[in-house]
Design a protein around this nucleic acid. Sequence first.
DNA 1: TCCAGTGGTTGCATTATTAAACTAGATTGC
DNA 2: GCAATCTAGTTTAATAATGCAACCACTGGA
Lengths: 155, 155
Amino acid sequence: MKRTSLEKADCPIARSLDAIGDWWSLLIIRDAFLGLRRFSEFQKNIGLAKNILTVRLRALVEHGILTTAPASDGSAYQEYVLTPKGRGLFPILVALRQWSEEFSADAFPTLLVDRDNGRPVQKLELRAEDGRLLGPGDTELKPNPKVSRRRRVLA
Amino acid sequence: MKRTSLEKADCPIARSLDAIGDWWSLLIIRDAFLGLRRFSEFQKNIGLAKNILTVRLRALVEHGILTTAPASDGSAYQEYVLTPKGRGLFPILVALRQWSEEFSADAFPTLLVDRDNGRPVQKLELRAEDGRLLGPGDTELKPNPKVSRRRRVLA
DNA sequence: TCCAGTGGTTGCATTATTAAACTAGATTGC
DNA sequence: GCAATCTAGTTTAATAATGCAACCACTGGA
């Protein structure tokens, strides 16, 4: 049976989901962006079972999203910190946040703001090379000329 | 046991994940953006079990992301199409795609391009009110003044 | 030394996922 | 008009993931 792996999928979205597409991983990453680093911090803040946190942290490390650093406050414990690849997930988190804010009926207790002046940030927008705003209907998928010849499953 | 529901979480990211945070939902939505509409189209293209597709489609409809329309080619069957709320997920898909493209070693067979001129789109970027580019460290979460007083769990 | 906190592991019950078989109604081929 | 096939599911039974609680070795502080 086995839970189908999307690791080798030809679709970049599927590949992303393979790395972060389960319930808890993105919440862990969200907390990592908020500055949490320790096992117990994640466990307390997210409220998931410890054995699952163990598995998720290991998977995130294996995917190169988190890395274990040997302490920072002098204690003998280790910490989990975001790699550059992990920090690259920032736009995804922002997009998820903005989607809820836009389409959920009620307001949320926190607001994402510019640290320099405390003002809310802009909405993420997709733009063309020349700066024009692009909606879903203004884009299409084109074969990538850099790729010679491969099976074209899961566009 | 029960899989913990994040439906009432105070965190907008958690709420998004409650709606679309499982393996298959986002792939279904991706295919919906590509123009697929029928049960069998999703099933063939994604390759998931039909009973699961049934459950996922129902959940997406309940969340207001998809809606069922009564045909379009004249047949007596129904179709699943994106609502405005569903189309609002576009930046999330783009962010997932761009993350894979940036951090995956190998190239992907398709490229997201501007339909008007076939040129690749820009990377999604978070900008301040005045247009300055913002990274993860340039932002913070501030209490939302619109919210009176609530439990502040799951920031 | 004692004792709470950290970072897990193990066992077991419950739930989710899966492939495969089955089905009722719609559509097509002839 | 009738059989074959397609559509959009449901059912079943096996396997995998999840959750909770208990346990455990090690650390750090009083």
